[in-house]
Design a protein around this nucleic acid. Structure first.
Lengths: 189, 189
DNA sequence: GCTAACTCGTACATCAGTGTTCAAGTTATT
DNA sequence: AATAACTTGAACACTGATGTACGAGTTAGC
């Protein structure tokens, strides 16, 4: 593969991640234009819209790994969770529209795979906190994780609708999540 | 208007509510078939897809009012909230797909109107609880309401994906919500 | 039983997006 | 400077949906 072709593939994937992060229904034509490339060229590299979306998501995932890897998960589980939630929130806020696009074009199994890694990260921390008695054990871990995801996704929607300021969101989210995880009979932090 | 025409209008609106509650992308043709009516007849009564969706939503709202009006909001705010959340959950679970359809076709202002009434109901109860010191006051009421909505919507998604049993959902939701509303320093019920 | 209202199927116009083909031009690599 | 790889726009076929037109059949209501 020639160097300029490789550069174009990159530019297209980047443009796809960018466009779909702003509008989940962005057309292939829009993305080609944003990449500064003809539509035909795009199809030369990505045989279908689905593969293009997949590539964009893969890019986002790679970015996400880097951000989450930088989070310190040691020490007090509640403090660690607050840090992890803050970092996750940044990603959700950035890529939520892209994930929406993925949900519409990629098969459900693929979506599952994508959430797998970050969910596992969350799960490990959660289970440590449960073992130490600071997180509740009367609800399934999977439910607690879903709840955290839902709170974050919902916050992103509110921001989009201009009913919530981006600056406030992080504090609201971690406060709410920490309360939701507190075991019955314990005091809310 | 002739009696049979009126009957058809009803049947169409009912079929629309039903179809869209199962598949938010149900086509006009699908709905006509479900109503036992020709597509042309449908267009005779509803000039466009948008008006059809609106009619379906209006039906759902009417149903919703009846359910929520039956909820007793007096007594301990936490118990009352649990009752209200249970009732709301039933509605969300039934109509979530329909609301999705509405979000795609109706203007955002119209959607806002639809959530207004149930949200206000929630808000009044929430504020009473805050005044009595059993709900937290360090986060805006609007955020707390959004959070409850998000938890419910998320649960509905999980059920759809077969990762959550419908029977468990109600308990999970109210437990989680009550914890999230507990004021800092207070014990989780 | 007459009539206006209503319904029906078929057919058609339109639109937006996807994916393909082709012939001609450009550029990286050797 | 030769060549293979790559890019390009214009054109086209296809799909699935919305909405319209028409002419013939059916039914409610008086």
């Amino acid at each position: 593969m020639r160097a300029d072709a490789q550069r174009n593939v990159d530019a297209i994937a980047a443009a796809a991640a960018d466009c779909l992060s702003r509008d989940p229904e962005a057309s292939v034509a829009d993305i080609a234009k944003a990449a500064g490339v003809g539509r035909v060229t795009l199809y030369g590299h990505f045989p279908s819209r689905a593969e293009l979306v997949d590539a964009a998501v893969a890019r986002a995932i790679t970015d996400g790994h880097a951000v989450l890897d930088a989070v310190d998960l040691d020490g007090d589980p509640r403090a660690a969770l607050a840090r992890l939630v803050d970092a996750s929130w940044e990603l959700v806020n950035r890529f939520r529209s892209l994930l929406l696009a993925a949900q519409r074009t990629l098969p459900p199994g693929r979506i599952q795979e994508l959430h797998q890694e970050p969910a596992d990260r969350m799960r490990r921390l959660l289970e440590r906190g449960r073992a130490e008695g600071v997180f509740r054990t009367d609800l399934p871990t999977s439910w607690l994780i879903t709840t955290m995801q839902n709170v974050m996704h919902g916050a992103a929607d509110e921001i989009n609708a201009d009913r919530l300021k981006s600056a406030d969101a992080a504090r609201y989210i971690s406060t709410t999540v920490l309360a939701a995880l507190t075991p019955p009979g314990h005091r809310v932090p």
